[in-house]
């Protein structure tokens, strides 16, 4: 199928981009890598008046060291993020989750920022951003603001960004040494969305868990931070028992959807099993 007609702009800078977005009105969409948007356009499930293509703004592709944090440009592709030495050193959970996104060709085009701004609760990266306390850097003609991950994902496919705002980057705090990470993705075929995913980072102190960060993919209209699990596992010995009992808290605060691939009840069960496994894998 063929997308409905739209106007197209290709600003050369962030300043240009936010001006274009401000003028374009509510029915304009930002085109990043287009890997989520293009199928929706082709199926005419999205019919924007205009696309603002930010693909030529080189600055948005940068991944830089910002002292106690990394700043990942919104237009850094999954392919780039997975291989970036800074990401691998300071945010390996992002690399691990990005490797599970779709397939290589999609990862060449699809972007870190685009996946987050799309705010699909079945997407792999939102839960990771939440687990890592990422901060979203957003620009508009009205200026720049920062949105913490806890506030960024509002509802199903809805972020806290206004229509005239552009995600320019994501600041990810460096967690410091001693963390193990794991992204546990459960899906029926290699290409399919996660039925449930668990993003997990664990810091050990000898034989005990000092701290854990856990967030869930596709367990509600937005990614869910599993505070209950984090609290329950803190200070516990590294053991399967600890992980299993902590994982019992995984469903707290979730509103799992029901769809072709899993009922809410099954998703709740999976969240528990997979959380336990993710903790164990991260704690190795």
């Amino acid at each position: 199928m063929i997308p409905a007609a739209f106007d197209y702009a290709r600003p050369a800078s962030v300043d240009d981009a936010v001006r274009v977005l401000a003028d374009a009105g509510e029915d304009a969409k930002v085109l990043a890598g287009g890997q989520s948007l293009m199928p929706l356009l082709r199926l005419r499930l999205a019919i924007p008046d205009a696309l603002v293509d930010v693909g030529r703004i080189g600055a948005l592709r940068e991944i830089r060291d910002d002292g106690d944090a990394l700043v990942i440009g919104a237009m850094a592709t999954h392919h780039q993020v997975i291989r970036d030495p800074l990401v691998r050193e300071h945010a390996p959970l992002i690399a691990a989750a990005a490797e599970t996104v779709a397939d290589p060709a999609v990862r060449h085009r699809g972007t870190f920022g685009g996946s987050l701004a799309h705010a699909d609760p079945a997407g792999d990266l939102p839960a990771v951003a939440l687990a890592l306390d990422a901060v979203f850097l957003v620009r508009s003609v009205r200026g720049e603001r920062e949105i913490p991950a806890t506030e960024f994902f509002v509802d199903w496919m809805t972020s806290a960004m206004e229509p005239d705002e552009l995600l320019v980057g994501v600041r990810v705090p460096k967690p410091g040494p001693g963390w193990g990470v794991h992204y546990e993705k459960f899906h029926r075929t290699a290409q399919a969305w996660a039925i449930v995913g668990v993003a997990c980072a664990v810091r050990r102190n000898g034989g005990a868990i000092e701290e854990a960060r856990v967030a869930l993919t596709n367990m509600g209209p937005a990614p869910v931070r599993a505070d209950g699990v984090e609290n329950a596992v803190r200070g516990r010995p590294v053991s399967e028992d600890s992980f299993r009992s902590a994982a019992e808290h995984a469903t707290e605060g979730t509103e799992p959807p029901g769809d072709l691939h899993g009922s809410p009840e099954y998703r709740s069960h999976l969240a528990t099993v997979l959380t336990s496994r993710a903790l164990a894998a991260a704690a190795v």
Partner: peptide
């Protein structure tokens, strides 16, 4: 198996 309402939570159903 119960059949949940299709179409939510990922997918283009």
């Amino acid at each position: 198996p119960d059949t949940a309402e299709p179409g939510a939570g990922g997918g283009l159903g």
